[in-house]
Design a protein around this nucleic acid. Structure first.
Length: 864
RNA sequence: GCGGGCGUGGCGAAACGGUAGACGCAGCGGACUCAAAAUCCGCCGUAGCAAUACGUGUCGGUUCGAAUCCGACCGCCCGCACCA
């Protein structure tokens, strides 16, 4: 095809155009958002990245989606906040420091500089004037301030908790750093240690965090369900079982149960290995002590739990049944009872709990069924290997017999609430949550210092607000294992702010999830120096209207942020409870994997392909050796199936990468990165360029104008709806359809006016997705200003409706014909037109149909 | 074990309960070219010359009509997991 527009270059040159338009946007400062703009606000946010060194394709996908929303909403007249920052504290910086002898701070900021440049080369419409990094003292000093506020409000506590301790590296390990019971780095057997740690009392908000999930109607159902399960509310009864003989100063054991209805099926009591009573009894019984230690060892290996045998130790103690003082039950220490949940003690009802049944069968404790499933003969109902945990009618249960499980629950609860044992009610209703308080202490250097000073006389003393921030020391050495803050005496040893005596700083730093629990609030006024937030700004902008990120944050990050926002409200730093009104979780970018004959992973860049469908084969570019094509998996360094965004942007341009990331797969699903797919996107970039230039030169008589204009406005309406619903793959398809229509109209007889109108709409439709190409085309069409600032075109509703519509005609549910009728034809007219069809008459052979169903505008179905 | 989701061409996928496969990728045939790339035209679920028949994991049900709703089963994916 010859170039229809002699003044335009034949090919669109992304390498030339992209930096040029990025510069134009930056010069015009059109993405810098004022807080006092009168237009309605819209806050789009993508989860901010960890500055690992380079962006990956997952970032490209995530930020491309967010940018589509931001640019679209801007065109729709919203004042859009679309900021970017860095989740900059974390372990990798310390690892780099150990391996490469670099300063964690220098390493982090170098990575930020690289990645900022990469993001800028994507042409994202970000307000860079609001950029923040969580490792900046100007950020973390406010976090320290809020820690102190929360402490004052009673939302922070300090207590001992078990941690994974690596005895070789002298360090605490996160659960995911423990592999098969060994430290991931040292390979040493991990020990369980008790350390004093700081906790955020997220459990204070358990009920609210659970209840408010119902109002998050723009969150994926899946994420809400995951959080609901994580919070794990259950309603039950705390019941005290009196010991027949007091032991170690105790006269009763408190048990938590959600099934008091099964109390007459009880066969034993079991307490956790960590239960205080177990510890007390073990003091003078070495065999119990060794049993407890054995339980702790099993506790570390997660996989083992599933297969672990139920083990118990008979204490010899007995308790009285709360509903029958004459009935005595043995007390065991058991490995399957968790100290962290409920009271750390359970009553065992073997017939109706699988764990209890396994335990009872092993120790010959028997079982008595007390709940009979509806419709079964109670006399014949027995339990052997499988416990019955469903509903039914009570049997073998004295005064409860015949009741439903629900009625029996109430009857037992009501009775035991009234009874008194040693001056206290025997039982109390209790709501129990699975959610635990959030331990935020990390024995690490590269994190936000906890602003506390420990004084032998005064205990833990808050650092005065005027002394904030507690800055991390810049010069640190990692040549010894452990936390360098503990060895940095100049930093550590300070006078007590209260009494002035020698004291020492808290050397733990905060979990990096704290940093990411409020950054979205900080973005609303990041320039503030004396407060974490500006109440007017934060209340104006929050909640985030659209938050976009990976499903891997479904629980921790998103739950912590919901908690932290509530805590900030209690401390007066914001007036909102929910940080994210709309949430979207995007899928991963996946790629084929490749292995050479030796079984080593080979990166895609070193491979060439031969043959097509069915016979596709891979060879190594240099050696020519055959390569095995493996499974399609998440891009990862270890499997070398990564494609570097820089390489793609350098060879195809950012618009091509963005377009491909948005096409094909629905955004919540994984997308497969393929070379063919990128090339297809690159071809479309050139096609748009040719079409727009051809439209600018159109010379037709206008016969094709109406159908072209209809196609353009259909696409306009469709893309608008699809962007609102984040269905980017459908946006892409609609744009292709319009491009096809424009192509056809140009080959036919479109007038220049109609062609340029349609081309203009096409350009505006692609502008949120391929912003650089759109600017270049906008200019080629002779439009003024930047398309990035142009208002979204109005749909001409009249162009969306057809004067005549063609309906499918079904006979007995199978399509047999089409009938064309005026748009406003009523059912009678449609029926008459249908019955007059030749194809219909042939089938009817003179008979009348038994029934005629006309769905206006949809379909006609004849039943014969 | 508990909870949730998903099964549609060679592939990624579309489809208010209403014409299954839009749109793209791959493939095939052709045009242009000395040739290649790029571009353009056409074909592209299965069987059949065709009319047509059959087709959304399997089996049943509801409905005038089911990929879509209901039940059972098969397969895959994800989350939680000794939570009393």
């Amino acid at each position: 095809m010859t170039n229809p527009n002699p003044t335009a270059p034949e090919r669109y040159n992304a390498k030339d155009a992209e930096p040029r338009w990025q510069e134009a946007w930056a010069q015009a400062r059109i993405f810098e958002t004022p807080n006092d703009d009168p237009r309605p606000k819209y806050y789009v946010l993508e989860m901010f990245p960890y500055p690992s060194g380079r962006i990956h394709m997952g970032h490209v996908r995530n930020y491309a989606m967010g940018d589509v929303v931001a640019r679209y909403k801007r065109a729709k007249g919203f004042n859009v906040l679309h900021p970017m920052g860095w989740d900059a504290f974390g372990l990798p910086a310390e690892n780099a420091a150990m391996e490469r002898k670099v300063n964690p701070r220098d390493w982090t900021y170098a990575n930020i500089a690289t990645m900022r440049g990469q993001l800028q080369s994507m042409g994202l419409s970000l307000d860079w004037s609001r950029e923040i990094a969580t490792c900046d003292p100007d950020y973390y000093k406010h976090q320290q301030r809020m820690f102190l506020d929360f402490l004052e409000k009673g939302l922070v506590t300090r207590r001992t908790a078990k941690v994974n301790w690596d005895p070789v590296d002298h360090t605490v390990l996160a659960n995911e750093q423990v592999i098969d019971g060994r430290g991931w780095r040292s390979g040493a057997l991990v020990e369980s240690r008790e350390l004093t740690q700081w906790f955020f009392k997220i459990t204070d908000f358990a009920e609210d965090l659970l209840g408010a999930l119902d109002g998050l109607d723009r969150w994926p159902e899946k994420v809400r369900l995951m959080q609901k399960n994580w919070i794990g509310k259950s309603e039950g009864l705390e019941v005290r079982f009196a010991l027949t003989r007091p032991a170690k100063g105790q006269d009763a054991v408190k048990v938590y149960t959600t099934r008091p209805d099964t109390l007459f099926g009880a066969k034993f009591l079991a307490i956790a290995a960590d239960h205080p009573l177990a510890a007390a009894l073990a003091a003078d019984r070495p065999e119990l002590q060794s049993f407890i230690e054995a339980c702790r060892r099993i506790g570390t290996a997660q996989e083992a739990i599933d297969t672990a045998e139920k083990l118990g130790f008979d204490t010899g103690l007995t308790v009285r049944h709360p509903l029958d003082p004459a009935w005595e039950l043995p007390v065991y220490v058991a490995n399957f009872v968790l100290m962290e949940y409920g009271t750390g003690a359970v009553f065992g009802c073997p017939a109706h709990d699988q764990r209890d049944l396994d335990f009872a069968n092993k120790y010959g404790l028997g079982n008595t069924p007390v709940v009979c499933p509806e419709g079964q003969d109670p006399a014949a109902f027995v339990v052997t290997d499988t416990a019955y945990d469903g509903d039914g009618r009570l049997i073998n249960s004295r005064f409860l017999d015949g009741m439903t499980t629900h009625e029996a629950f109430e009857a037992v609860a009501n009775r035991l609430e009234q009874e008194v044992l040693a001056g206290e009610a025997v039982a109390a209703r209790k709501v129990q949550f699975r959610l635990r308080d959030w331990g935020v202490s990390r024995q690490r250097y590269w994190g936000c210092p906890i602003p506390i000073i420990h004084c032998d006389a005064c205990g833990p003393v808050p650092v005065p607000v005027a002394d904030l921030p507690v800055r991390l020391p810049d010069e640190v050495s990692f040549d010894q294992p452990g936390n360098p803050l503990e060895r940095d005496r100049a930093w550590r040893d300070v006078p007590c702010p209260r009494c002035g005596q020698a004291a020492r700083r808290e050397t733990d730093t905060m979990d990096t999830f704290v940093d990411s629990s409020w950054y979205f609030a900080r973005f609303t006024a990041p320039w503030l120096t004396d407060a974490p937030t500006d109440r007017r700004a934060v209340d104006h902008w929050l909640a985030v209207d659209q938050y976009i990120g990976g499903i891997e944050h479904a629980i921790l990050h998103l739950l912590y942020a919901r908690f932290f926002t509530r805590a900030m409200r209690e401390a007066g730093w914001s007036g909102v409870a929910e940080p994210f009104a709309g949430l979207f979780t995007q899928g991963m970018v996946v790629h084929e994997t490749y292995k050479d004959e030796a079984g080593a992973w080979v990166p895609p860049a070193e491979i060439r392909f031969e043959g097509g469908e069915g016979g596709r084969q891979a060879f190594h570019v240099k050696t020519g050796a055959p390569i095995a094509i493996g499974a399609i998996e998440k891009m990862s360094k270890s499997k070398k199936n990564v494609v570097d965004p820089d390489d793609i942007i350098a060879s195809y341009g950012a618009d091509t990468a963005r377009w491909f990331m948005l096409s094909d797969s629905p955004p919540e699903r994984d997308v497969i990165w393929t070379e063919e797919g990128v090339q297809g996107a690159a071809r479309f970039v050139q096609r748009v360029w040719r079409l727009v230039n051809a439209a600018a030169q159109a010379t037709g008589d206008g016969a094709a104008d109406l159908s072209l204009r209809k196609a353009a406005h259909r696409a306009l309406a469709g893309v608008g709806e699809d962007v609102e619903r984040l269905r980017f793959n459908r946006c892409v398809a609609q744009v292709y359809t319009l491009a096809n229509a424009l192509d056809e109209a140009l080959r036919g007889t479109a007038s220049r006016a109609a062609a340029t109108e349609a081309a203009g709409i096409l350009v505006q439709l692609i502008a949120p997705m391929m912003p650089h190409l759109a600017e270049e085309c906008w200019q080629a069409l002779g439009r003024s200003g930047l398309v990035a600032q142009a208002p979204w075109p109005e749909v001409e509703a009249a162009l969306l409706v057809e004067d005549e519509i063609t309906l499918p005609v079904q006979i007995n549910g199978k399509k047999r014909a089409d009938v064309t009728v005026p748009r406003d034809a009523d059912a009678k007219a449609v029926e008459a037109a249908t019955l007059a069809l030749e194809a219909v008459q042939k089938v009817l052979e003179g008979r009348a149909p038994r029934k005629v169903i006309v769905v206006p505008g949809r379909i006609v179905n004849l039943v014969v």
